[in-house]
């Protein structure tokens, strides 16, 4: 059997024993395979390397809590026919927005629908207890909701101690700048990629923390610029993708997820924001889209 390998032989994974034996003795087929490999590399770079659809985020500054239905989806088509699609990771981006509201009065019977994200519910109140991986949140004992977390649950915590800042962490820092030194009002650890944001002190600086001391650190920006940052007891430290152990019992907490038949919540996000009166406007109803929205809302609140 001297027939050369055809495309089918070369594209089958794994290559058959027959094909492997042929390749060992056929330089032409090895060259042919290498060419397909080159072409496949280019295709895979374009397909598998395609970045996630860019999230278009809008920040609704802190202020009066919005009620009602929130923003209208961009098209009636989506609103009437594709509500469930809005819950997909990334599919709903840019095609709808959702409002997550915090503050008094947003909890009704424990859970409230998140406007714009079909099936998504929220609850808020005091973090009463951490029971393993379950977070118990509620305005009062009668309204407490058990929110089960998983490895995919996004946990964002504000009000962390300065000591949670570590060398090598990526961070976004906002605050007034004086004589080349940034006086940090807000440090968001783990924040990346949030753009189009402004704070009362101008756009936040982004980079990697180094040379950490008790009174500040150096922020190394992507272009290599080194920015001196000072911290104080007034600096609010927030962590995106924090650990459950960093949640503070007794602090105001929001839980967002899908209601289970037993009344518990399968949480996709747990949040301890810096302020009760914050509205998070997200596009996309996924943990990652929420991370971005939270980052921007936190900054706006700084």
């Amino acid at each position: 059997m001297n027939a050369h390998l055809d495309i089918d032989d070369l594209l089958t994974d794994p290559v058959s024993e027959r094909a492997r034996a042929h390749l060992d003795g056929c330089a032409g087929c090895r060259t042919e395979a290498a060419r397909w490999e080159t072409a496949a590399g280019g295709v895979l770079e374009l397909i598998a390397g395609t970045p996630e659809p860019e999230l278009e985020l809008d920040v609704v500054p802190a202020g009066p809590v919005r009620g009602g239905t929130g923003r209208r989806p961009r098209t009636a088509f989506i609103a009437t026919a594709a509500a469930a699609v809005l819950v997909l990771g990334g599919v709903g981006y840019g095609l709808s927005s959702a409002l997550i509201r915090s503050g008094p009065g947003t909890v009704t019977a424990g859970l409230t629908a998140v406007s714009g994200c079909a099936g998504l519910e929220q609850t808020d109140g005091t973090l009463a207890q951490l029971d393993g991986t379950t977070v118990i949140v509620g305005a009062s004992p009668g309204q407490q909701v058990r929110a089960a977390t998983s490895a995919r649950t996004s946990v964002n915590v504000s009000g962390l101690p300065i000591s949670d800042i570590t060398d090598g962490a990526s961070a976004m820092v906002a605050g007034p700048e004086s004589n080349g030194t940034l006086q940090a009002k807000m440090v968001i650890l783990g924040a990346t990629g949030a753009r189009r944001i402004n704070t009362p002190d101008g756009p936040p600086a982004q980079g990697t923390i180094s040379d950490l001391t008790g009174t500040g650190f150096t922020l190394v920006e992507p272009d290599g610029t080194q920015l001196a940052v000072t911290t104080s007891s007034d600096t609010n430290v927030t962590m995106i993708n924090a650990g459950l152990g960093q949640l503070r019992t007794g602090a105001y907490t929001m839980a967002i997820g899908y209601a289970r038949p037993d009344g518990t919540l399968a949480a996709i996000a747990i949040l301890q924001p810096p302020s009760r009166n914050v509205v998070f406007s997200i596009r996309g109803c996924t943990p990652s889209s929420m991370d971005h929205a939270f980052t921007m809302a936190f900054m706006a609140a700084s």
Binding site: L11, D13, P14, R20, E37
Partner: peptide
Amino acid sequence: PGQVTTHG
């Protein structure tokens, strides 16, 4: 060596 696989 010489193998082409699909990585999808």
